[in-house]
């Protein structure tokens, strides 16, 4: 069926994806999200429960999950807001905890996502999970539509989990704890997958582990930014050392 009439006047969009194709991409993204992505459900559930147990209004769960959308920081935000921390403190904490995202721009395939709105949402929803799933080997052929759909689905899991958690929170007794381990389990799985994928490149995870342990020992309060800086520096040194002696200037 000739579905591409010549009267495509919207020249702003260089390669419009036909609706049918867009649907298959969304379906593919739904399948992609089924494993790691679904791990966000228990984690969102935990966030919702933590929010109600902390005494914050229930609507904070969908609000934080939808608007802030930064997993580990949202758990911290609960404590900060309960303690009525100044907004400047919240901003600074958010900056320190999420500074790691600066590094994600190095590998996230934003260039495949089309359109101004698409790129804006894609950067907004660039969580650790979205980063991990879209930088893996199997994602190399994914289109922008598939990446964008995956990100939207991941956020639906997260917001849905948090909302249900907030609604059920009062039913769950305070002594049931430990749901937040879902985040640790999620990163354990993501780390195993990422390391398995780069079989033969053992130095990278080892350097990362050493960077994290060094940061934990030296500046435990700023583990993430320090560890990322050390890890980046170590990779750069390794890159320069293994490269053949550069001949230019």
């Amino acid at each position: 069926m000739p579905m591409f009439p010549v009267a495509v006047s919207d020249s702003l969009c260089p390669a419009p994806i036909p609706p049918a194709r867009r649907r298959t991409e969304a379906l593919a993204a739904l399948k992609d999200s089924a494993s790691v992505g679904l791990g966000l459900l228990p984690l969102g559930l935990a966030l919702g429960v933590v929010i109600t147990h902390a005494g914050l209004p229930r609507w904070c769960a969908p609000l934080f999950a939808a608007v802030v959308y930064a997993g580990s920081f949202e758990f911290l935000l609960v404590g900060l807001t309960v303690a009525a921390a100044p907004l400047a403190t919240i901003a600074l904490t958010g900056f320190m905890v999420n500074a790691r995202h600066v590094f994600y721009a190095l590998s996230f395939p934003l260039h495949r996502v089309r359109g101004r709105f698409g790129k804006a949402y894609s950067t907004f929803a660039l969580t650790d999970e979205a980063y991990a799933m879209t930088t893996g080997g199997q994602a190399r052929s994914w289109s922008g539509a598939r990446i964008l759909s995956l990100q939207a689905i991941l956020q639906v899991y997260w917001v849905g989990g948090a909302t249900v958690g907030a609604l059920l929170g009062s039913l769950i007794p305070d002594r049931v704890t430990g749901l937040d381990f879902a985040m640790t389990a999620l990163f354990a799985v993501l780390a195993l997958d990422a390391v398995a994928e780069r079989r033969g490149d053992l130095p990278t995870p080892v350097l990362a582990l050493l960077s994290a342990l060094a940061a934990r020992a030296v500046l435990p309060g700023q583990l993430l930014p320090v560890a990322f800086a050390l890890f980046t520096a170590a990779l750069l040194v390794r890159h320069l050392a293994t490269r053949k002696r550069p001949s230019h200037d």
């Binding site: 590094f103 590998s107 980063y131 780390a191 350097l207 583990l223 560890a227 890890f231 990779l235």
Partner: peptide, 21 residues
Amino acid sequence: QYLSTTMPSGIMVILLVYCLR
């Protein structure tokens, strides 16, 4: 380019250590 290919696996390891800090 080198950083962009090597970083993902290391970053997840660091996040795991962070969770267990």
